[in-house]
């Protein structure tokens, strides 16, 4: 902050107007989040009032036509798909980042990083379409029906891998060179340096990447909607079709009325709750304990 009030003995009106205009713009930008949460709550209230929270976990099934609103199978769907994708994408992302930083020759590393960036920019609907026409038929030959939890996990893995890989790459780059030289001077091998020095030093950045990737997987809608089959059930195997919370909103919002519509907003609130928890834990991790 260079400007202080005392710099200007008589701040011109134009400056004051400018600051207030900027504050107005920032106010609008800041209020959007509040607005979103307020509207979600407002629209969710009717269902919460007439049904109560309990019914979303105790109803016999999800049949809005018969006023049954069991949300659990879709929560399981979201959870399993996200978990599977994170478990697969974390090692792949970390290994990709290590590849870029220490294993690949320079030109290959640069091309590979560009690849990953592009991969991260591909729209979810394109992933979903590709999954639908290529991946799902392949899985169907392996074990019918095809649209399944497995398809969802594979697609989500490719989608969150760039987030994890790029953030891992960035945090690996921040590890001080002296650490690595010191470890090399002690005669440690490449892998011993990576495992014993680099990864612990970059830990918080790696965690942040995984958490952001998790957030992306939870919120992903279109790709999952296109490859998962959208049957409301708790999956018993990898080959069972599932429906996630996000896909449920996208599928039913078009015709939902009354309590049904309101119940969809409740599931929206649940999603925002999950994301908020993730964001705050990411912040908590990245704030302190950088080298801890």
């Amino acid at each position: 902050m260079i400007w202080s009030r005392s710099t200007f003995l008589s701040p011109s009106n134009r400056d004051r107007l400018l600051v207030w205009t900027l504050r107005g713009a920032a106010g609008i930008a800041g209020l959007i989040l509040l607005f979103i949460v307020a509207f979600l709550i407002l629209e969710a209230l009717p269902a919460l009032r007439t049904l109560g929270l309990i019914r979303f976990v105790t109803d016999p099934s999800w049949h809005p036509g018969e006023e049954f609103y069991l949300m659990l199978p879709m929560m399981w769907g979201t959870l399993f798909a996200t978990l599977g994708a994170v478990v697969l994408a974390t090692p792949l992302g970390l290994l990709s980042a290590l590849f870029c930083r220490w294993y690949a020759p320079k030109p290959i590393a640069r091309t590979y990083r560009r690849f990953i960036e592009l991969l991260g920019g591909i729209p979810s609907v394109v992933y979903g379409f590709w999954g639908l026409v290529v991946l799902v038929p392949m899985i169907s030959r392996l074990h019918p029906p095809g649209p399944s939890l497995l398809a969802g996990i594979v697609i989500l893995t490719i989608m969150i891998l760039p987030t994890i890989a790029l953030l891992a790459d960035a945090s690996l780059a921040k590890v001080p060179q002296e650490y690595i030289r010191g470890a090399a001077a002690l005669g440690l091998g490449r892998w011993a340096i990576i495992r014993g020095v680099v990864i612990p030093a970059a830990k918080s950045g790696l965690f942040t990447g995984v958490i952001l990737g998790t957030g992306r997987a939870i919120g992903e809608t279109m790709a999952v909607l296109m490859v998962c089959g959208n049957v409301v059930q708790t999956p018993q195997s990898l080959f069972d079709p599932i429906r996630t919370l996000t896909a449920n909103i996208a599928l039913e919002m078009a015709y939902a009325l009354g309590d049904h519509r309101s119940a969809l907003f409740v599931s929206g609130l649940v999603l925002v709750g999950m994301i908020l928890t993730l964001v705050s834990s990411a912040e908590w991790i990245s704030r302190g304990r950088i080298y801890g």
Partner: peptide, 24 residues
Amino acid sequence: LIRRSLDVLAGVPSIIFGLFGNAF
């Protein structure tokens, strides 16, 4: 406050924006 609110907004899933856009 603004910065915090924008950070959270960046993580909100797009389907939630869809719900909000539809309602608002």
